[in-house]
Simulated scan of single mutants.
Amino acid sequence: MFSRIRLKTALKAAAAHLILSIAIAVFCAALVFGFWYPSPFDQLARGREIFLLVMVIDAVCGPLLTFIVFDRKKPRSELWRDLAIIGLIQISALGYGISSLMNARPVWIAFEGDRFRVVSVPDINLNQLHLAPESLQHLSLTGPKLLGVRLATNSDAEFKESIFLALDGVPPAFRPARWIQYEMQVQEIIKTARPLRNLLQKYPMQKSTLDKIAIQNNLHLDRLGYMPLLAEGTLEWTVIIGLEDGKPKAYLALDAWD
């Protein structure tokens, strides 16, 4: 049973713990969204949902446990032991959550024939990473990088296998043996990109948004194209491509498929 005095001191301790938890959450947010999941990949790779779940659990459970156990009448050693156990539990849970976010981070924005695909660490068989060119064997810790993908053709010995793997949920962008430097496919990307007027016909209300993207990149709308952008669980994103350098200029939550 909480006395008025104990309730007051327990609330103060829990409030202090909550402030500390919020400060740690802000630091973690800067790490997660500043490096591993820069916008819009916090949405595309579902980093936002995972982070919020981890932080809510961490910021609620720690202060709540502190509120329950905090009692000035306890021997100092017992009180510190209880608080240390709570801190250890909270740090362990936070470490596990942040580690999970790091291990699920997006590492590539891969051009795959007529689309782009977001590739995250769990999509890749890390045992096959040595099959990629040496320069592509490092998985980014500072947001996804651009990647080219060599598609199998009819003349390739593994053509049928490649089709079966794709049908089984392992598209070429997930296979290190198919990775190549993005710069090697720039001309193909420029040629494949769909004219932006097609997107404007489908989404006329997006004219101002596209105008803003063009101005920010010092390009005319005619010098921008687009392709569908695939990520786990969604087909409704679009990547806007510069037709001069073949690089993504913006990502929009629009369905680019005809």
Rank of each mutant, 00 (worst) to 15 (best):
M1A: 10
M1H: 13
F2E: 10
S3N: 10
S3E: 10
I5H: 10
A10D: 02
K12V: 10
A15R: 09
A15F: 13
L18S: 15
I19Y: 01
L20W: 00
A25S: 14
A29D: 10
A29L: 03
G34K: 04
G34C: 06
P38S: 04
S39I: 04
F41N: 04
D42N: 15
A45Y: 01
R48L: 13
F51K: 04
L53R: 11
V54L: 09
V54M: 06
M55R: 03
M55A: 12
V56W: 08
I57S: 06
D58S: 11
V60M: 05
T66Q: 05
K74V: 09
S77T: 15
S77N: 15
S77G: 11
R81W: 08
R81F: 12
R81D: 11
I86T: 07
I91N: 09
Y96H: 08
S99I: 03
N103M: 14
A104P: 00
P106E: 00
V107Y: 02
G113W: 01
D114A: 06
R115G: 03
R115F: 03
R117E: 04
V121M: 03
I124P: 00
N125R: 14
L126D: 00
N127C: 02
N127M: 12
L139Y: 06
L139K: 07
S140E: 06
K145N: 07
G148H: 04
V149T: 08
L151H: 07
N154V: 01
S155W: 01
A157M: 09
A157T: 14
A157D: 07
E158F: 09
F159K: 14
E161K: 07
I163Y: 07
F164R: 14
L165N: 08
A166Y: 08
D168S: 14
P172Q: 06
A173R: 02
A173F: 03
W179K: 09
E183T: 13
M184T: 15
V186N: 05
I189N: 03
I189D: 01
K191Y: 05
T192M: 13
L200T: 03
Y203F: 12
M205D: 15
Q206G: 02
K207R: 15
S208F: 07
A214S: 05
A214L: 03
I215A: 11
Q216T: 11
N218Y: 12
N218F: 11
H220I: 10
L221V: 03
R223F: 07
G225E: 00
Y226K: 07
M227Y: 00
P228Y: 01
L230E: 06
E232C: 01
G233D: 10
E236K: 15
W237K: 07
T238K: 04
I240D: 00
I241L: 01
I241R: 07
K247N: 05
K249A: 02
A250H: 08
A250N: 08
L252F: 03
D255T: 02
